[in-house]
Simulated assay, not measured.
Amino acid sequence: MKKLFFALVLLLAGAAGALYLSPGALIGGVQWVERGLAGLSSEQAQVGELQIHYYEGGPADGETILMIHGFGANRDNWLRFARHFTARYHVIALDLPGFGESSKPDASYDVATQTERVQAFIEALGIDKLHLIGNSMGGHIAALYAARYPQQVLSLALLDNAGVTAPNQSELFQRLERGESNPLVVRNAADFENLMNFVFVAPPPLPDALKQHFAEQAMANSAHYDKIFAQLRERYVPLEPELPKITAPTLLLWGDRDRVLDVSSIAVMQPLLRKSSVVIMKDCGHAPMIERPEETAKHYQDFLDANPS
């Protein structure tokens, strides 16, 4: 017991030192712990000229759930959510090309192009059928995939997804129409704090040193993200004509206080889907799987249980 106590003291001391001297080292340690708790390992695949990084875990013979992150994000968004599914499902969370650790070629990142890249990734991994879940831009991609490849999709879950003209315009698009800067792109330290408050109702707590580290990473990618966001708008693919092509049961899950994409989008989407379920989470923002991962996972598992493949 005494040895264990001293080991814990050393671990805490090391973590404190890492936070002071190298926030990046601490982040790596936290990610390692989170991956372990989620039962995921870090993998990579060569898909054409692209190197795709992804997390993978769960039984290889289980049904596959592919998790697709949103704009400016990466596969880490799913870690605390994914831990609820790896005991039963084969779980994959990828870094989309242009994000995270995956390749960032000087190429197009519109939703249609990214959908075909996801298809090539799925084919490279030899997956025939799968459950798709996506958040924000990732939901837009997941929905377009389900419309283009309906025979492969067992179920579809869309968390605060893009791609729909909402009856009530969101605060994000109101700001953009006024000519204000994009609150999803971080250009200085203050922007990162504002981003957290914009995306979440209750932002995840972060030490100041980690906030600074994440802000610096986001600032370094600001020009890249500006380019991608411009492409998403210039080469926009509306989902309204695509949704009737989706044959899989579809979950529409939204935070009722989403300032990025308004919850009224559900009123447009639900009548266009063949089989839909709706969950609106009270006092929740744009990324429910981060803000309230356990509750979001329960809603998703209930949906999967209600729609066995």
Score class of each variant (00 low, 15 high):
2 K>F: 13
4 L>F: 15
4 L>T: 12
5 F>R: 11
8 L>D: 11
15 A>T: 09
16 A>V: 11
16 A>G: 13
21 L>G: 03
22 S>D: 14
30 V>G: 05
35 R>P: 12
39 G>A: 08
41 S>I: 06
42 S>M: 05
43 E>P: 03
46 Q>S: 13
56 E>G: 05
56 E>Q: 14
59 P>H: 07
60 A>H: 05
68 I>A: 01
69 H>A: 09
71 F>K: 00
71 F>C: 03
72 G>K: 04
75 R>Y: 00
79 L>T: 08
79 L>P: 01
79 L>A: 00
82 A>L: 02
93 A>K: 02
96 L>D: 01
99 F>I: 00
114 Q>F: 08
117 R>I: 06
119 Q>A: 15
120 A>E: 14
120 A>F: 04
123 E>I: 06
124 A>G: 10
124 A>T: 15
133 I>Y: 03
133 I>D: 01
135 N>R: 11
141 I>P: 00
146 A>D: 00
157 A>H: 09
164 V>N: 02
164 V>L: 15
165 T>H: 15
175 R>Y: 10
175 R>T: 03
186 V>M: 06
195 L>W: 07
200 F>K: 04
203 P>C: 06
204 P>S: 11
211 K>Q: 15
221 N>P: 00
230 A>Q: 12
241 P>S: 05
241 P>R: 05
243 L>Q: 00
245 K>D: 13
248 A>G: 07
249 P>V: 08
253 L>C: 03
254 W>P: 06
260 V>H: 02
260 V>R: 03
272 L>G: 02
278 V>D: 01
278 V>T: 14
280 I>L: 10
290 I>S: 07
298 K>R: 15
302 D>G: 09
304 L>M: 10
